[in-house]
């Protein structure tokens, strides 16, 4: 880690001066607590007793048969409390914020998974919580808005810009600029200014710690390939991290190809983007010829984001990980094939 928070040639802290103080404060607190056995013990307790970890590594036997090639295992992060991997990060960050004496939590959310996971952690640790959510997403993800509200969180619709995830992050950053003294901003992915990309990765790396142990127990060897979808890239960073040192394991990140890469309606930041600065870090982003951020599209609301975590950019340029994209139609077709082939009693 270089002085200004770079991961290889990417990352950094490109934020208004007023945010340098809370970022330094967060950096120091994280540095301290990440090495504090008591903190780690407490986090581990909540991850297992509250969130339901470890999540199973399921051998998808029928899906494997139907494909006729690779033996496919699914790391079932969907079985965690609140239904996604997001809880791994929010429990870590909210517990950290509590130790730092913060009174208020803010977060952004796209699909609502991170918002629900943040609201849940705040309810658990008894902290005030407000979540910024694009007005378009509020409308199309009503159930998650309801879940957040039930947990005592206030959902603030964002009407600026494209009214989706990118704008929700902008609005959360503006809130933080106003309320730096007592507020912690829980970023939901491996994006944002340092230390967020590495801190969120660390909280999510529980996925690869478990997966590595589980695959060694069942297969007696490491996997040939690890595949994960990439929006901002937190679940991918979580499952890649433990395998990065094992160069024989191929790492493949799958970006949202939307209606096709040539349609202009996609979220393939690495495959079709270029280097630039968005939300506090230098990474691959989708932008026009003047450096304005592009609108994106994906059927998966959580992948609908014009950037990618800086560490993914680094893994891409070093060649350690490969990045491909699939279209909305391809993703839906794969989802249906998986569901049909794993349906009990049929093949």
């Amino acid at each position: 880690m270089s002085l200004y928070g770079f991961m290889g040639e990417f990352g950094g802290r490109f934020v208004p001066e007023v945010l340098m103080y809370p970022l330094n404060e967060l950096d120091e607190a994280y540095d301290h607590f990440s090495r504090d056995p008591e903190f780690q013990k407490e986090l581990k307790y909540y991850l297992s007793q509250y969130a339901g970890r470890p999540s199973p590594l399921y051998y998808a036997s029928r899906f494997t048969d139907s494909l006729g090639g690779a033996r496919v295992y699914l790391k079932r992060e969907d079985l965690n409390h609140t239904g996604s991997h997001k809880i791994n990060n929010t429990l870590g960050q909210v517990l950290l914020a509590k130790k730092m004496g913060k009174k208020r939590i803010i977060a952004e959310t796209g699909a609502g998974q991170h918002g629900v996971a943040t609201a849940t952690a705040c309810a658990l640790f008894d902290l005030e919580c407000q979540v910024y959510m694009g007005a378009v997403d509020v409308e199309r993800q009503k159930l998650n808005v309801f879940r957040m509200e039930v947990l005592g969180t206030e959902v603030i619709p964002v009407t600026s810009g494209s009214q989706t995830l990118k704008d929700a992050i902008n609005e959360a950053l503006r809130d933080w600029v106003r309320n730096v003294d007592h507020t912690h901003y829980v970023i939901g992915s491996v994006v944002g200014p340092d230390p967020y990309p590495r801190m969120v990765r660390d909280f999510q790396s529980v996925i690869s710690r478990e997966a590595k142990q589980q695959i060694l127990e069942t297969e007696g060897k490491l996997p040939d390939v690890v595949v994960a979808c990439v929006g901002g890239g937190s679940n991918a960073m979580g499952i890649f991290h433990g395998f990065v040192p094992h160069r024989e394991v191929r790492l493949i990140g799958v970006e949202a190809g939307g209606l096709g890469l040539d349609s202009g309606k996609h979220a393939a930041s690495i495959e079709r983007g270029s280097q630039g600065i968005l939300h506090g870090s230098l990474s691959y982003i989708l932008q026009d010829e003047n450096g304005q951020i592009s609108d994106t599209h994906s059927v998966a609301a959580g992948l609908d984001y014009p950037g990618v975590g800086p560490e993914h950019s680094s893994l891409f340029t070093s060649g350690r990980a490969e990045y491909v994209s699939v279209t909305d139609d391809q993703a839906l077709e794969a989802f249906i094939n998986l569901s049909l082939s794993e349906r009990s009693g049929e093949k």
């Binding site: 200004y4 802290r13 208004p16 001066e17 007023v18 340098m20 103080y21 730096v180 003294d181 506090g280």
Partner: peptide, 30 residues
Amino acid sequence: VADFPLEARPFLQPAAEDLSIIILASTNTS
């Protein structure tokens, strides 16, 4: 540059011969 604090100043060095690079300070700056 509103989102370039002191630490990002070296990125602007290639323009420093032509333009005075103004840096912002804030009330929570040490």
